[in-house]
Write a protein that binds this DNA or RNA. Structure first.
Lengths: 147, 147
DNA sequence: GCATGATCGTCAAGGTGCTGGACCAGATGG
DNA sequence: CCATCTGGTCCAGCACCTTGACGATCATGC
């Protein structure tokens, strides 16, 4: 059974590759070729409101410095604006611009599209059971750099 | 249904994170903390025989230069040796040393272990159906950098 | 009040890993 | 042969991450 377990590990990595590449391609097709998946995920998080650089760092699983740099890029692209937190002058709340909202939506669409591409192969039932199985795994929370 | 598709994409990435981290940890627990997953995969490939730098590059989905650098590290660690190809003086066949074989085996074990950790949660039947579902997806072949 | 310590964020320097361009040595085919 | 292709490496540059240090702002306890 060990041999099959090893193969399963590879199929999981393969699936993740398909997802990441699919998101990249989906973003590009929507005119956001410059947006990397990790940036898209950050935008989605920011879109949920009340988000700071630390929140982004936690979600992506990187240091606050790395998150700060990533956010800096998004600010430079006019996807994100920093606003002062009225309750805590240390915090700089992140908010989406109109362009940022478009990118966040595109990221979610691209992610959905990437797995929707499997529907012809797996069927709706297959996707559903896949969702059930993988959803039962530990939620480690942080995603991974380079995504 | 789109919302669920988006979530599924995230669960796939989460699963891949678990696999990669599990492999890292499994390698460390076997005394190969310095071996990165991508290096382990390269070792496994080299262990199959008749492997060149270009083959490694293809498997990992990186340029031949990157593969060359990765192999250079493995050679420096005495995991891999380069031998001349008697039929083609341009090719430098890669072979595993005893230490390299140990690392390759440890990588496969660690990968199997990473998904075996899901057995208590998903059950043997769950793993099997997961394998069936993910195995049906396109085999893009190349893995990803940084793994 | 006010010192002390924790927290948010940035700056700066450094490392790692990948890429594209250039190049050499060896193979290949008219 | 000679032009071309292929396997491999060297090199410069880049993208992204990390650790360390720091200023600024809260929060606590006396």
């Amino acid at each position: 059974m060990t041999k099959r377990d090893t193969d399963l590990a590879l199929t999981v990595l393969n699936a993740a590759t398909l997802v990441v590449d699919g998101i990249q391609e989906g973003l590009a097709r929507r005119g956001h070729a410059a947006v990397r998946p990790a940036q898209g995920f950050a935008l989605v998080r920011i879109g949920q409101g009340d988000t700071t650089v630390l929140d982004v760092a936690e979600q992506l699983g990187v240091t606050k410095q790395a998150a700060s740099q990533l956010v800096e890029v998004l600010v430079g692209r006019r996807h994100v604006k920093r606003v002062a937190d009225p309750n805590d002058a240390r915090r700089r709340l992140l908010t989406l611009t109109a362009r940022g909202r478009a990118c966040a939506a595109a990221t979610e669409e691209a992610a959905a599209e990437a797995v929707a591409a499997w529907r012809p192969t797996l069927g709706a039932a297959g996707l559903k059971s896949l969702y059930g199985l993988l959803g039962a795994l530990d939620r480690t929370g942080p995603l991974r750099p380079a995504w």
